[in-house]
Computed example of a mutant assay.
Amino acid sequence: MLQVKQVCQRLDINAQTIYYYERIGLISPQRSESGYRLFSSEDMENLRFILQVKLLGLTLEEIKELLNLKKGRSLSCQVVYDQLKGKIAEIEDKIRQLEGLKSELMPLLKQCEVNLHNPNPDHQCQVLNVNN
């Protein structure tokens, strides 16, 4: 059994992160008689899982759902597939939105480039004026 400090060192995470995960119900370490949190190898495995899937972009709520399924040992390939497919769809949607924003900003950037060559150093940038 490991205490918080040891877990933080092994997983390279902040103690506040562990406390937060416990508060929101992602983990539930045992307690010693004196109240210290004690982490089993299963707790460590769950924390590694949380950190790994968080890097993949899953929200803490999505991770909580996966952990609940995992606790019930019913974490099927279909469940993981569905979660990851949904996350990929969200990412693709964000990419489309960002591409649209980029398309709107590129003409403004080109206009700025033209204005940079203005011989008057006090020339005020008009690119973002609403009246343009």
Score class of each variant (00 low, 15 high):
E61Y: 12
L69F: 08
I63P: 01
V80M: 03
R31N: 05
L51V: 05
E33Q: 04
G57L: 03
L38N: 06
L84V: 14
S74G: 12
E61P: 08
I63N: 04
D82C: 14
D43M: 07
G57P: 04
D82R: 15
L51C: 14
T59E: 10
E65P: 03
N46K: 12
S34H: 09
Q52R: 15
N68S: 14
V53Q: 07
L67W: 03
L67E: 08
P29I: 03
D82A: 15
L66W: 09
N68H: 15
E42I: 06
K54W: 00
R37S: 10
S34L: 04
L60R: 01
P29V: 12
S28P: 09
L69W: 04
F39K: 00
E42A: 13
S40H: 01
E42L: 15
Y36L: 09
F49E: 09
S40C: 01
F49Q: 09
G57H: 03
Y81E: 09
R37T: 10
V80G: 03
S28A: 15
L69P: 01
R48A: 13
Y81S: 08
R37Q: 12
Y36C: 08
Y36W: 13
D82H: 15
S28F: 13
L38M: 06
S74D: 08
M44C: 05
K85L: 06
L84Q: 10
K64N: 12
P29R: 11
S40R: 04
I63T: 00
M44R: 10
L58S: 00
I27D: 01
G35I: 03
Q52C: 15
Y36T: 08
E61W: 10
L69M: 11
V80T: 07
P29Q: 02
R48G: 10
D43I: 02
R31E: 10
R48I: 05
I27F: 03
G86H: 11
D82V: 14
C77P: 04
V80H: 05
Q30Y: 04
Q52G: 12
S41M: 13
F49I: 11
G35L: 06
N68D: 13
R31F: 06
V53R: 03
Q83F: 15
Q52D: 14
E61I: 11
S76N: 09
L84G: 12
Q78V: 00
K71C: 10
T59A: 12
D43V: 03
L67S: 01
S40W: 07
G35Q: 12
E65L: 10
L56Y: 03
E65A: 08
L47V: 07
L69I: 03
L75G: 05
Y36D: 09
F39T: 00
E61H: 11
S28Q: 15
E45R: 14
I50A: 02
L55Q: 07
L47T: 05
I27K: 01
Q83E: 13
I63V: 02
